[in-house]
Simulated scan of single mutants.
Amino acid sequence: MVRVALLFIFLNIILIDVQAQYVFFPNSGTITYERKFHVQNYLKRNHLNKADLDTWDKMFVDEVVKNGPMEIGTKHSLTFYDGETLFETIKEDYPSNYRSALNYLPVLNDSKTYKNQKTNMFSRLIHFSGDEILLEDTIPVVKWRYTDEYRNIAGYDCRRANGVVQDSIYVVAFFTNQIAMSGGPELIQGLPGMILGLSIPGWNINMFATQVELNNKSISGQLTKSKKVQPKSKKETRELLRRSVYEWMEEDVFQKQWSKYLF
C-alpha cells in the first residue's frame, strides 16, 4: 500500500513538471490602454496657485477650468514582439472642449514611440507646428522598488512596483510576469514582466490596460515616411525645441516641459 502511495506521488510530481514545461508565457501581442488625465486637479495645483501667472495664461487656464472637462480619457495601443515595442495614440474625434485642455497634458498626446530592448534604444516621433522631430536615444532607466500589493488587470495578475524616472518623477506600475516580455507604455519599463497599469500621481494621470490580444504581429521601427526627418539625440532635440518653440520660457519652466518628451 505504501509503495502504491509513493508511486502515485511520484507520478503526480512528473505530471506537474511536464505541465510546467508547457506553461505559455507570451512575448508578442497588442495591449489597449485607457489613459485618464484629471485636468481640473492638475491645473488647479500646477497653474492657478502660481503667483507669477501672467494675465494671458490665467485667462486660458480659467477658461479650461470653467468650460473644460473634469477628466480627459484617451486610448493607446502597445504592440510588443520579441524585445520590441511600439506605443501610439489611437486617434479619436474628441469634443471641442477636449482640445484646449489637451494642451496642458503633461505628457505627449500625439506621438509614436518605438523601443528596442536588444539595442537599449528608443525612437519617438514628435509633431509640432506642422513639422516632425525624430528623437532617438538610449531608453531611460527607472529605479524600481517592489511592494506586496497585487491587482488583477485585464485578466492578468499584477504586482505593484514604485519607481522614479528622471530623478524626480514618481510613478506607480502594476506588472505581470504572465507576459514574459519586460515592457510598458511610453518609455517606462525595466520590470520582470509587462506593465499593465501605470499611475503618475504628480501629473494626475492613470493608465490601465483594458484588453490584451495575443498575436504574432511584427513591429517596424520606421516611424515616419519622410526621408527629410533625420534622428536627433536628446541634446539636439532639446536645443531645437528651446530655440524654436520655448525660447520665451524661463529655464526651470522649460525643464518641466522638456521632461514630457523623455517620459
Rank of each mutant, 00 (worst) to 15 (best):
V4S: 09
V4P: 01
I14H: 02
I14S: 05
I16K: 11
A20E: 14
Q21A: 07
Y22V: 10
F24R: 08
F25R: 13
P26V: 02
P26L: 05
N27A: 01
T32Q: 14
Y33F: 15
Y33Q: 07
K36Q: 13
F37K: 10
H38R: 09
V39Y: 00
Y42D: 05
K44Y: 09
K44E: 15
R45F: 05
H47Y: 15
L48N: 10
N49Y: 03
K50A: 07
A51G: 00
L53C: 00
D54Y: 06
D57Y: 01
K58F: 05
D62G: 13
V64H: 06
K66Q: 15
N67T: 06
N67V: 00
P69G: 09
M70Q: 13
E71D: 11
I72W: 01
I72V: 15
G73T: 14
T74A: 12
K75C: 04
S77K: 10
S77P: 01
L78G: 07
Y81W: 04
E84Y: 00
Y94T: 06
S96D: 14
Y98V: 04
S100T: 13
A101V: 08
L102K: 02
D110W: 01
K112T: 04
K115E: 07
Q117K: 11
K118L: 03
K118T: 10
S123Y: 04
I126Y: 02
F128G: 02
E132N: 10
E136A: 12
D137P: 09
D137A: 05
D137F: 02
T138M: 05
P140E: 00
W144R: 09
R145C: 03
Y146E: 13
T147K: 03
R151H: 07
N152C: 03
R159A: 11
R159V: 02
R160T: 08
N162E: 15
Q166K: 08
Q166E: 11
D167V: 02
V171R: 02
V171Q: 08
V172E: 13
F174S: 06
F174H: 15
F175H: 15
T176D: 12
T176L: 09
Q178K: 12
A180I: 00
M181T: 08
M181F: 07
M181Q: 15
G183L: 03
G184D: 05
G184P: 07
P185S: 08
E186H: 05
L187M: 14
L187S: 14
I188N: 10
Q189L: 08
Q189G: 14
L196R: 07
L198W: 09
G202V: 04
N204P: 00
I205F: 03
I205L: 09
N206C: 08
N206T: 15
M207P: 11
Q211M: 11
V212P: 14
L214S: 07
S218L: 00
I219A: 08
Q222S: 06
S226R: 11
S226K: 11
K227I: 09
Q230F: 00
Q230N: 11
P231L: 03
P231T: 05
K232I: 12
E236A: 13
T237R: 01
L241T: 06
R243S: 13
R243G: 03
E251D: 15
F254R: 09
F254I: 08
Q257W: 11
F263Q: 09
